[in-house]
Design a protein around this nucleic acid. Structure first.
Lengths: 160, 160
DNA sequence: ACCTGAACACCGTTCAAGT
DNA sequence: ACCTGAACACCGTTCAAGT
């Protein structure tokens, strides 16, 4: 709180007129990062082929995480306060790629399909940020093949 | 440190004869959770079909995370100290399922395949623990379909 | 050797007072 | 209304002293 306050040109106690406590301030920052992620996804190039579009968004997702490691760690922090604003901001970010999932597997299974790719993306980048992969080289390829494998698998599994 | 010490029947300062600081103690706990996860994976039922075996291990992985939410959050904490012991313990846990990946996609692509399924598992359970999924119901099904889709996709993509 | 109380440093938080 | 210094609570850490 001290550092944040000074960075804004005031002192720590003054923050308590805007935020009731540290958790609330952190939650507000989390919302900003969700919005920023949503913008990054929306900026990714689109295509008529949903697999291409989702691949571009997947790359944008990973780039965002690597460019904002602290912010990214924050938005999925299990110990963070769960707020309604955070849930809304997260839903808005997820919504960006839903149309492509609909195009890929149909309306009925779009949410389910998102629940397969999104965890992979989150898991991959958070493991990467945590330094969990033993051998650094080959990571880019693993990411690309992971995305490709999952998207191909989704189309096969759900298109029948 | 105070709580840990009291839980063990001593006082906080005494901990500093075993651990140089809080980070080192937390790192030691992390190693224990990795070993515990490795045991949980090793205990999962096996089959001649690598897809069945990996599915069982995936379920064991998720069960472990849900049974030990704090410990699970710890082992992939991006802000945690990276230690050599932790890296070894993690490698040992990963090693449990490598033979099944070899059986699924061959020696050459086993590591790459592990780098697809493992991030999905980690991402799914950490999102689940963080309360990131909007609609609670359907989560079990999403997990099962995710694992099935990825394993099927891996076999198709890498078996050629 | 192992443990401890006392003390220190740091930081989130409260509050009375200043403008 | 908004901001602040001073004070408090809490907790990680150090250290001199006890056994």
């Amino acid at each position: 709180m001290t550092d944040v306050a000074v960075a804004v040109g005031i002192r720590a106690p003054s923050l308590y007129s805007r935020f009731s406590d540290r958790d609330e301030l952190v939650a507000a920052v989390e919302v900003e990062y969700w919005r920023s992620l949503a913008r990054a996804l929306a900026r990714a190039p689109r295509s008529n082929d949903p697999i291409r579009t989702l691949t571009m968004q997947a790359r944008a997702y990973r780039s965002f995480a690597k460019a904002n490691p602290r912010g990214y760690a924050l938005i999925y922090d299990a110990s963070a306060e769960r707020t309604e604003d955070g849930a809304r901001a997260r839903a808005a970010a997820v919504a960006v790629s839903i149309p492509s999932f609909v195009a890929l597997v149909g309306e009925r299974d779009a949410l389910m399909a998102a629940r397969v790719l999104t965890p992979f993306l989150h898991g991959f980048v958070s493991m990467e940020l945590a330094g969990a992969f033993r051998l650094g080289p080959g990571l880019d390829e693993a990411f690309e093949r992971g995305v490709a494998t999952i998207l191909a698998g989704l189309r096969v599994t759900f298109r029948e």
